[in-house]
Structure formats: structure tokens, C-alpha cells
């Protein structure tokens, strides 16, 4: 049996009376890509800091790559990589110089290893580019390279593709999938559903508790048990008021040029009639697909 890369049992952290992380449990296996979502202040960062051995748990227990995070934090940090959106890259150094510098911090002086890392993140040929002149997408690749130079077995990514377009995001995630295929385990925190959709499993936190952790498909199925209706009707705002007041409707949201309604038992005809009676023009009502954002809003409210 293979041992999980991350194993968390009743992990808890209090700051005074405030319980930032409240008895959470989960496991992550080798080569898995897991997303970790939650509103600001829900305990995501506190969890990661405990897993990195930067903060002692108040209660419970966690192991990373077989090491106890509280007692063997040095061992943990040698084997994990961390990429943050706010990562400091030296703008007046080149790609290669940045990578060499950060390699040195981890005791990596092997030139071949540094070259290999450059290749891995697709920056071969850009060794001598000043990083200040690079696009956000390229800088993110360099940040990833810096997090990978010591060949970690576990990688923490904090909003890794913040600010880039879908093309750059796709290219970045292709790299992540290759790493995972090679056995690296990935834990991603993000506020963006565009990013969360790429994860194999997604956990949602609120008020220090881990409310759910499952595949995006299963979360959509188990958390959003009702139907999703896309309602094109005018005026929109009156539409929201009327449908929100309708018994059996769980959520009504404005979605730009239409309304998004989630309900277990209210059918299309009922929605349409409720609007028509109030003289709302109904253009069309279509069935929609649940999204990860629906899941997030259902859990995090």
C-alpha cells in the first residue's frame, strides 16, 4: 500500500479564542492534483502554513511525505516546493540568474539540474532575458521553475495563474499535469473557478471547517441536487425579486443578461408563469449545468 503524501487528522489551530482551522481531515495521494478553496479568512492559508511546518497545530496531527509537520518541519521543507503569486523574482536579474540564486538557497549548485529545470518549465532559450521584461505568463513559469529546482515531491501553488489569459493558463496547467504524471503531488489554493476546474479533487473550507472534498463532477452532483435554469427575462431586477420569493427556489443570481435559478422541485413552467403573471417578458428558459461556482456559493454562504 502506498502511503498518502499528505495525511491530516483532526488538524486544528487556534489563535486565542478564534479557531482558524477546526478539526479537519483529509488525505492526498501521490501524483494527485487537489484544489483548496474557501473565502478569505476561512483557514486555507493557516492549513498550508501548518503543512509547511511554519505554524504548530494546536491539536491534531499531520504528516507530509511521511514526516510529522510539527516535529520534522525541516525534513518537510526540504522536500516541498511553494509557488506564490506574490513570489519575489529579481527583475534586474536574468531567468538563469534568478534560478541559480534560488537554487543556491536550497543548496542546489548542479548546473545540469538548473538547465533541466529551465527546460521543464519551457524557458530554454530565454536564459538571458531580464525577468523585468517578461510577460506575466513567463514570470509564472519562472516562479514555477524556482519552486521546482530542488525537485520537490510535493508542490504548493497559491493562485498560480492569477492575471493571465486562458492560453497561458492552459500552457501552465499542461506543465502541472506533466509533473503530476511524473509523481509530483500538487495542492492548489485559488479564488478562481477557472483554475479550480483543472483540479482532480477540490476541497471547500468555511469558518475553519473542511465542508467537502471530492472531484468537481461529484461535487456538482452531490451539492447541487436541484435543477439549474437560465432565465432570460426583462426587467431582470424585478425577475430576481419575484423568483426569490417563489417557494422552493433555493438561489437566484444575476448572470449578466439573464438570471440563474437553482431549485429542487420548481419546474420551468412554474418559473415562467410566476414571471408572466407579474408582466415580466420571458424570452426563454433553458436548462443550465451546475458549475463549481454554484458549489462554492452553496457551501460557503
Amino acid at each position: 500500500m502506498t502511503e498518502p503524501v499528505i495525511s491530516v487528522q483532526n488538524l486544528t489551530r487556534r489563535f486565542g479564542d478564534f479557531v482558524a482551522v477546526d478539526h479537519i481531515n483529509f488525505e492526498v495521494g501521490r501524483g494527485e492534483i487537489v484544489g483548496y478553496l474557501g473565502p478569505n479568512g476561512s483557514g486555507k492559508t493557516t492549513t498550508i502554513r501548518m503543512l509547511l511546518g511554519l505554524l504548530r497545530p494546536s491539536d491534531g496531527h499531520a504528516t507530509v511525505l511521511g514526516f510529522d509537520v510539527a516535529r520534522q518541519s525541516e525534513e518537510v521543507r526540504l522536500r516541498v516546493g511553494y509557488m506564490s503569486q506574490k513570489f519575489a523574482i529579481y527583475d534586474d536579474l536574468t531567468t538563469l540568474e534568478n534560478l541559480t540564486f534560488y537554487g543556491g538557497v536550497y543548496g542546489v549548485t548542479d548546473k545540469a539540474r538548473i538547465q533541466h529545470t529551465l527546460e521543464l518549465v519551457g524557458l530554454k532559450g530565454h536564459e538571458n532575458t531580464l525577468t523585468g521584461d517578461m510577460s506575466t505568463g513567463w514570470r509564472q513559469r519562472l516562479s514555477l521553475g524556482i519552486a521546482l529546482v530542488h525537485e520537490p515531491k510535493l508542490l504548493f501553488l497559491d493562485e498560480p495563474t492569477s492575471g493571465v489569459d486562458p492560453t497561458a493558463r492552459r500552457a501552465f496547467w499542461d506543465l502541472i499535469y506533466e509533473l503530476a504524471e511524473g509523481g509530483v503531488t500538487i495542492l492548489v489554493t485559488t479564488h478562481y473557478m477557472d483554475e479550480a476546474e483543472y483540479c482532480e479533487r477540490v476541497g471547500v473550507m468555511r469558518d475553519g471547517k473542511l465542508l467537502a472534498m471530492d472531484t468537481p463532477t461529484n461535487l456538482k452532483k452531490t451539492i447541487i441536487t436541484g435543477n439549474v435554469w437560465e432565465v432570460f427575462a426583462l426587467p431582470l431586477e424585478r425577475g430576481v425579486e419575484i423568483l426569490s420569493a417563489l417557494s422552493g427556489v433555493e438561489r437566484v443570481g444575476l448572470a449578466g443578461d439573464h438570471l440563474r435559478v437553482i431549485s429542487q422541485r420548481v419546474e420551468k413552467e412554474t418559473l415562467e408563469n410566476a414571471l408572466r403573471v407579474e408582466n415580466i417578458t420571458v424570452e426563454k428558459i433553458e436548462r443550465g449545468e451546475p458549475t463549481l461556482e454554484d458549489v462554492f456559493l452553496a457551501l460557503a454562504r
Binding site: P39, N40, A255, F296, A300
Partner: peptide, 15 residues
């Protein structure tokens, strides 16, 4: 940098 719940609220205002 804003979480999805806050973002949802913000969008409701804009719409």
C-alpha cells in the same frame, strides 16, 4: 484577489 462569495456580491451590484 477577491473570493468568489464577495465577487458574487460585487457582480450583483454591477448588474
Amino acid at each position: 484577489g477577491v473570493d468568489p462569495v464577495t465577487r458574487q456580491d460585487f457582480w450583483q451590484l454591477v448588474i
